[in-house]
Amino acid sequence: MKIITLPKENFAEFVGHLCSFGEIHAPIKRGDRSFVFAPVKDASEIELDCVRTILPLKKYFFRPMEVMFNFCAGEGYEIPSEVTDKRIVVFGAHPCDIHGLNILDMVFNGRYVDTYYLARKSKAAIIGLDCIPDDLCFCRSTRTDFVDTGFDLFLSDIGDKYLVRVGTSLGDDMVRAAESLFYEVQKEDRDAYKRKSIERRESFKTEIQLQDLPGIMDLEYESQVWQDVGETCLSCGTCSMVCPTCYCYSVFDELDLDGSSGRRKRRWDCCLFKDYALVAGGHNFRAKRSSRVKNRYFHKQRGFVSLYGRPSCVGCGRCKAQCPSGIDIVDVITKLRSETRV
């Protein structure tokens, strides 16, 4: 992989160059202590120290709500052109964010291709940025604290410079567009990177053991833990909305008053909603909240492993940070594990 450095004093100018590759989106502040990815005009607006945004990057490619196609009697179906229009540059994606997108890439590709997601994804450049974990981050446990694919450029803070890994040809184009701002990697840069890497590794405060979790989940299928979480869970949907890898959606038709034209839409759905597994006729395969909670953990930590070879949790901490009733995934998993040890 091509690796170069960008002195921090050149950063703002580099960001200035990026707008020729699309609208720049980066973390900015919202509310007292929250952050969101949103359009920025220049580098000064970017919150470089943001640990996590409210919504992950999926919002750009898999929209909270979107029109799948319009319909009109006698004229058939028409896909909205918006899907393929706009180029964006996402700056400041953390390794867990990028892993989240890589997981969605797997889901939305496959035998059938989700054209909406992929059309938007193909129009976006991803520039990663490393970060210092807070108390809620457990991406080291999920092995998503480092990323080697899924970005065009990735910036690591090594003091007064960024070490820049170039992931794609588009990333290289972005570098070439501002070539004079970049430098070759020196020995002291390599040393600084390695030093920082250790520092970062040692700053993780939360750790859970996940490797053998699928087996433990099978073993603890009837655990009281699920009942307890079911009593606390509000079924409010927050954890799914903010999860980088929750991809469930619900499809519905919306009619115009003429009764013949309208649109088919989809919106983010959540497996904790009461009617998630409801079938026509009224049978609900997961009528109890505890069974829905269990299904959610099972899917992330057990089912996804069988389907795609890895758990779908990226350890970003959003579900804990945003849960109104304070359900903590690390806590739930720890309880499951300790029950096994007894």
């Binding site: 509310g31 007292d32 409210i54 919504l55 409010c236 949907g237 983010w268 945003q322």
Partner: peptide, 19 residues
């Protein structure tokens, strides 16, 4: 038939309970 929280998070508003 889901909660206001769902739409609140879809629109990416900071949580007023938490924040």
């Amino acid at each position: 038939n889901y909660a206001v929280c769902t739409e609140c998070k879809m629109a990416e508003y900071p949580c007023l309970l938490i924040e």
